[in-house]
Design a protein around this nucleic acid. Structure first.
Lengths: 126, 126
DNA sequence: CGGAATCCAACATGATACTG
DNA sequence: CAGTATCATGTTGGATTCCG
């Protein structure tokens, strides 16, 4: 008979080429999801976004928007008026990404009590 | 008429009580998803996990497993033999969480080329 | 208005050595 | 075997100031 040992399968690869890691690492940061959801309703200007994404600093909003733009999730349009106007909106890919993210949101909403309980139980044990 | 301005809706709330932020922040770290997926096939011992999750240090494996246990995603069982044996497996909630995560994995797989192209285009522009 | 540049504190992670 | 403790380093994000 052949071996019954589990094949030593490596988990979904851990390197920077891993597409999943790329996506999750990006949207897993402190602000990306909030910005994406802030853009679901439509186009927004920089300062409007800053208002809607509560607590974000100008620095992080700029930086995260640049990252999201580079990944292809967000479009940036500059209107060379004075003072300048800049609008952001989701790309088609961005709108598509939001779908699986909503699944996660839904899951998190449904399980928040379970998680709270699990934490409480864990903390009381130790 | 009433105002036609967009209602100034705050995005999904940005604080530590936000269930979504809790979930995404946890699984968005460097190792959590890899560990969860490594446990999908069934129970694994500590060092077996360490082998399967390529590149993880003992320190981060321990720490991330503790976090996942505290959230209620992972079960930890100690067999007080000598030397000690410790087994990890997904909880019911953990197995359930993996489902929406797979949606994200699938999405990421399907769009990896688009993302690569978007990055290339972005980098060439600037 | 929408940034960029700089500085700095906090945190995350890796390497290494030690242990019940 | 499955950790813990300690140290070193890199990364993140906030505050502030300046700019076209």
């Amino acid at each position: 008979m052949t071996t019954t040992a589990k094949p030593e399968r490596r988990v979904y690869y851990n390197n920077d080429d891993c597409p999943v890691r790329n996506v999750v690492a990006q949207i897993g940061d402190k602000w990306s999801m909030l910005i994406l959801f802030a853009l679901v309703d439509g186009t927004e200007r920089f300062n409007a976004l800053k208002s809607r994404v509560e607590g974000i600093s100008q620095r992080m909003l700029t930086q995260t928007l640049r990252d999201l733009e580079r990944e292809g999730y967000v479009n940036r349009t500059v209107y060379p008026e004075v003072p300048v106007k800049v609008e952001y909106c989701l790309t088609e890919m961005g709108r598509d990404l939001v779908k699986p993210l909503y699944q996660l949101v839904t899951w998190a909403d449904q399980h928040q009590d379970d998680i709270r309980q699990a934490r409480k139980a864990y903390d009381e044990r130790s």
